[in-house]
Amino acid sequence: MEEKIISLDNLSFFVNDLIKDNHIVIGQDSKEINWKRITGAKDIVVNSKNIPSNISYKEFVFAKTEPIIYYKNKKDEFDIVEPALPRQKLVFLGAKPCDARSIEIMSKVFNWDYKDKFFNERAEGSIVIGVACNYQDKFCFCTSVGLSPVTEKGSDLFLVPLDEKNFALQIVTERGKEFIQPYQKYLSDGNQAKSKEILSKIKNPEKRFETSKVSEWLTNNFEHKIFDNVGDICVGCGQCAFACPVCHCFDIVDEECDYSSGRRMKNWDACQFGLFTLHGSGHNPRETQGKRYRQRIAHKFKYYQDKFDEVLCTGCGRCSRGCPVGIDIAEVVAEINSLA
């Protein structure tokens, strides 16, 4: 892998140039709540010691709300207008390894039978500039789902903080190489030995479970009481799903509609909501919170694996940190692991 060096100052110039060249640069908000469009070098927060933001950056590829069609009533038929989707050149700056793979992972479900152009138009052209992670708390478990604080998986370019003022810039993918080409002037030659040494010093979070074991247990223990124990206290707030970098459920609703016209919106939804599976008949196949929580775990650690050979979780720990009633997903899955 090719490696360069970029100084902090040059990183600012680089970002300014990107913005000038019509890239949409997305970075973590300084309050660590969510991600925002960066308007200039002053907004840059590339910090390997940051806690993962409360809410991931998925909303830039999978919008929290967006119109998918507009319709208009003409005498006997409807006129359907599709929203224009200008191809965006998104750049995610400073993605931790537990964020960097999110688009790749979601892309599988958005391109399975139906190709979701809303997702694809944004995701396909996007560039992920990852950063090695030097933050760690009890909620992090990237190593349990096949990632690590130092992996470049998912990134096109990967930053390693060398000292206060310099980053090593690893060129990971062909796309990344092409993307960085016009900005060579900001890079100088790197030395892999130094970044390797730095990366080797970063401690891994402890591995808590084996995904294959968990998936197998889930196949055989659909009715296990562990889910009801969690359901006892889970309040079904959906914070976990909305904060998650890879949860991707949505609901479709019409709004602004009257007899003549309207628009159809695609909005985030979550399997922890009681209404998520409520049928028109009044029947609800997941009528208790325990059953809803089982869905959350099984979707992440079994169904998605069975279907797409991916764990639907990057181990970022957001859902656990933010859960108002302290449900820790790694703890639950580790318990399953110990039962298996």
Binding site: I55, T65, C237, A241, W268
Partner: peptide, 11 residues
């Protein structure tokens, strides 16, 4: 910034 998760309501 609201994402309409209704966590405020559920809590």
């Amino acid at each position: 910034r609201c994402v309409k998760c209704y966590a405020c309501r559920q809590a």
